[in-house]
Design a protein around this nucleic acid. Sequence first.
DNA 1: CAGTCAGTTCATAATTTTATGAACTAAAAA
DNA 2: TTTTTAGTTCATAAAATTATGAACTGACTG
Lengths: 164, 164
Amino acid sequence: MIFNCKSKIVLTDKQKTLIEKIGISYEKEGLQPVAARISGLLYVADNPHLTFDEITEALQISKSATSNGINLLLQMQRIEYITFSGDRRRYFRLKISNWREEFKHKIEVMAGFNSLMREVLAIRTKETPEYNERIKELADFLDYVFQQLPLLLQQWDKEKNNKI
Amino acid sequence: MIFNCKSKIVLTDKQKTLIEKIGISYEKEGLQPVAARISGLLYVADNPHLTFDEITEALQISKSATSNGINLLLQMQRIEYITFSGDRRRYFRLKISNWREEFKHKIEVMAGFNSLMREVLAIRTKETPEYNERIKELADFLDYVFQQLPLLLQQWDKEKNNKI
DNA sequence: CAGTCAGTTCATAATTTTATGAACTAAAAA
DNA sequence: TTTTTAGTTCATAAAATTATGAACTGACTG
């Protein structure tokens, strides 16, 4: 058998508080409570790689809750895992590098709302030109943002490269 | 008594479908189902001003549901109402002009997450420099976006004025 | 003063979401 | 072969959210 150093995770009060804050923040975005706490834990834990049992224990939740939370986060591509030969456990970690994807996803959600606004404009009565114009203005702005945000990403990359 | 033309609102299937789509979209943002449907209704209804009873009837919901939904939307500043002398009813309409405020609010929510990331960085162990660097990168990008988005609003205003 | 109108409030019901623990599985170890 | 490990599944429980209808309020009306 391979030497398994299962050091129990001890969280400081600061870490616990921050896990809850991050949890609430993610909950507001619609993430399930347990999945939100797992994300928080992975942000603050000293070791960025945690096993199933470490998560279960650190958050004091049931195995089923951990199982569901982890599988949700895996499916959402917010976490990933690595394994080591001779050790059956998966070591989960945040896919932080994925924030670009998440950013793009948020833009797409905005764009989705925008296309609803276009649908609204298409079926609205023509009797209310001022009102329709306001909706159009909103839709146009969302178009503009949708077009500019990818540029923002590019510009940031450029600035970052200049600094290095 | 003043002549009260209470023309019952008749919704086409297209309108109903769109109300539901907008409803779901707003629900995903965390808005309560009824409030989300009321918003949808106010987007698609021929008349941008609807009374309490018109909303209740058009959406086939209870008076209490309408009352709660309307009060929530009023409190969130997403709708407002006007009145006419000799008519006790309130005529509700979307505060569409408020989309700027909502946009700013979304930026603030992002900034809130960013400040959580800064807190994470402050308490994270220094033993994981690469991981911390990734989190810092995310936080820096959010800072950048937070700084650039108000400019985006200004630029759009400029472009719009040039067109007029 | 009785009745109507335009809502609000509240207890309750229905629904949905979330979490649990016990039983299960499949692979590896003893 | 039996046991342990690393989870998964599922029925159920607990909690939170949402909607309802009946009773209520307070301003106006006749």
